[in-house]
Design a protein around this nucleic acid. Structure first.
Lengths: 178, 178
DNA sequence: CCTTGCGTTCAGAACGTTTTGAATGCAGGG
DNA sequence: CCCTGCATTCAAAACGTTCTGAACGCAAGG
């Protein structure tokens, strides 16, 4: 194969690996995704192990991860007993998968914890010394800030997830904050 | 101190720790930030080491990290030789610090790499067999998708960073994608 | 100029995560 | 109903990261 094609393949794989790390996934997952993404034909576990020079066990586990995140899907090739994978190439879909399961949970959890904190502070109000009362007041201010931040994140998330259609990135010209 | 105040303190610290992990920082950094954030008085390294039950060495290093990210600042207390820290409590400022240094670099790097890939493919065009040409075409399509995604991210980032004033989260009612 | 009290550094330990490869399980073809 | 070829699992090892505590450096006050 032409050297440039190989080079593009490599840099895409490692770029996806980097991106994966950035989003809190394992680097191998990203490299696998990048490799499958650039293959017109579905790839088997052995193909992937060989291309990335990692053990088949690792490939097996990481590809199942990718599948669970909706970033790759199994493909049956008739007459073959191997498992073949192809990448979900719709980036928007991938983003939505991640946002809607992982990030949404995270934001909601944070908001719950903050709500509980506020309750605890209000509930304790009657039992506090003057000093403690001032401290509680201070806590409430800080926590209100945090709450505002997470509510902002929540609204942003829901707005993005709320737009049902598969969006074309090219068509998005601007995010407006007002 | 009242039990509820302590509980709020603890859960805020661990919540910030979790958030820090989520954003790719160390958990200790987050816990330190949460602790300083909920203290009306600046805290010394010893205070922090004692409150979080970690070594002074670790506190020293992690607080300097927080300082570099603009999440905490040193405070001089007259007549004291200790270093005291207070938290940057303006969340918006903190977010902007992180976005503008770390995330922006990441996005720009990705776009550079993708641009180089496209160049390599175009440059090789003349030297390819028919099969390779088809493959190169396939690569170009995939890479164009990735490029669109990162451009989207870039625009989103610059839009957020472009709004100069310190924004009040409460005032932000909606992100509109159009 | 010595002492004291602090922050910083860093080598080594502890810890968690990821990888490997061998064992196992499983399904389809002969 | 066995055999073969594959995927999966998992314990052990490799690896990287983070934490610790002792040693060090530095500055200020006596």
């Amino acid at each position: 194969m032409h050297e440039n094609l190989k080079a593009v393949n490599r840099s895409t794989a490692s770029g996806m690996g980097r991106l994966a790390r950035f989003f809190g996934f394992s680097e191998v997952m990203g490299r696998l995704y990048g490799t499958v993404l650039l293959s017109p034909e579905p790839l088997s576990l052995d193909d992937l192990a060989q291309r990335l020079q990692i053990s088949k066990g690792s490939v097996s586990m990481n590809m199942r991860s990718l599948e669970r995140w909706g970033m790759a899907t199994e493909v049956w090739v008739r007459g073959e007993r191997k498992k073949y994978y192809k990448a979900e190439s719709d980036m928007w879909q991938v983003i939505r998968n991640v946002l809607s399961s992982r990030e949404r949970r995270e934001v909601n959890l944070a908001l719950e914890v903050l709500g509980e904190s506020i309750e605890k502070l209000q509930q304790a109000e009657g039992e506090l010394s003057p000093d403690e009362l001032a401290l509680a007041q201070y806590y409430l201010e800080r926590i209100a800030d945090l709450q505002a931040f997470f509510k902002f994140a929540q609204i942003a998330l829901e707005t993005i997830l709320g737009s049902d259609e598969t969006l074309d990135f090219e068509a998005i010209t601007k995010i407006e904050i007002r």
